[in-house]
């Protein structure tokens, strides 16, 4: 793949991602911090070690696809895309700014490297099924990845797509649930429990795997194992921590969409990052 794994380098990169994501969101005044930070290791692994992509040709037909169905985690995807060379890193500071190509929710028409628009929850897994069917009709070998939220899994459309993918044995489809156990109104177990989540997906004729969504080895081993599954789609339930790495927000429902109205709030979130020893990839005032 694109780059060999170096644990020290990846740890440093994850810290830098968290620093940049938090800075971008705080600078824009508000944003979906929790669900972006919970995906950092997974997104880095996908983009640095797993996915077959060509940043110079974002629409290359043979590429692996990724549908970020929980489109509000756009910021973590933007950082990955910028660091992989899909667009200049300096552009990251335009998140949510007037005229930006980096809107809060992933938009395929705006940002190089975004495969599908998402934001109205529950729709991305169906689009991923469409990508998977397209790959099958064209007899292509690519993998279609789809990341859904745990709260998003309340949506009925997710289960329509789940039934379809299971029935059609879409083994070129690998979905990942970001199971940070929080949604806007509280813990998923309290709002509407998803349990038994693994059994649900198994009952829909999916292969089901679980992983620690912050452990480099586990993530890589699980995703590559999922790609090797034949005859059925795979759901990877990723156990993650919402707002991982930002101590004042970690595992709190409020981390879903933080408000940063002033300098004090900005300092609160930035200073709460467990690692801050990084240069921002853009100039700041």
């Amino acid at each position: 793949m694109a780059e060999d794994f170096d644990r020290e380098e990846f740890d440093r990169l994850a810290g830098e991602f968290r620093y940049v994501i938090t800075d971008m969101i705080c600078r824009s005044g508000s944003g979906h911090l929790g669900g972006s930070l919970s995906l950092v290791e997974i997104i880095i692994t996908l983009y640095r070690r797993v996915m077959n992509l060509d940043p110079a040709n974002p629409k290359w037909e043979g590429r692996d696809r990724l549908v970020l169905s929980k489109g509000h985690a756009g910021p973590v995807l933007y950082v990955a895309l910028a660091y992989q060379g899909f667009f200049p890193r300096a552009e990251l500071k335009t998140l949510n700014a007037d005229g930006t190509r980096l809107p809060s929710h992933a938009d395929r028409l705006q940002t190089p490297g975004i495969d599908m628009t998402a934001g109205s929850l529950g729709q991305g897994l169906s689009a991923a099924c469409g990508f998977a069917m397209a790959g099958r009709i064209r007899r292509r070998e690519h993998t279609v990845f789809c990341i859904i939220g745990d709260g998003e899994s309340d949506e009925g459309m997710i289960w329509e797509a789940a039934m379809f993918a299971g029935h059609n044995s879409l083994d070129n489809l690998v979905a990942i649930t970001d199971y940070n156990r929080l949604q806007i109104d509280g813990f998923t177990d309290e709002v509407v429990t998803l349990e038994p989540l693994a059994d649900k997906w198994r009952a829909f004729n999916w292969e089901v795997m679980e992983m620690d969504g912050h452990d480099w080895d586990d993530i890589y081993a699980t995703i590559t194992a999922a790609q090797a599954v034949r005859g059925r789609p795979t759901m990877i339930i990723a156990h993650t921590t919402k707002a991982r790495g930002c101590t004042v927000a970690e595992n709190l429902p409020e981390s879903h969409n933080i408000k940063v109205p002033d300098e004090a709030a900005f300092e609160k979130y930035i200073c709460a990052l467990t690692c801050r020893d990084y240069e921002l990839p853009y100039e700041v005032d």
């Binding site: 599908m116 169906s126 009925g156």
Partner: peptide, 21 residues
């Protein structure tokens, strides 16, 4: 044929369309 799942039909159509179908 996606079965009685019209929203899924639209979403799958969208994925197919973005892939050039």
């Amino acid at each position: 044929d996606v079965g009685v799942a019209e929203a899924n039909m639209i979403g799958i159509g969208a994925g197919l369309a973005v892939d050039g179908f």
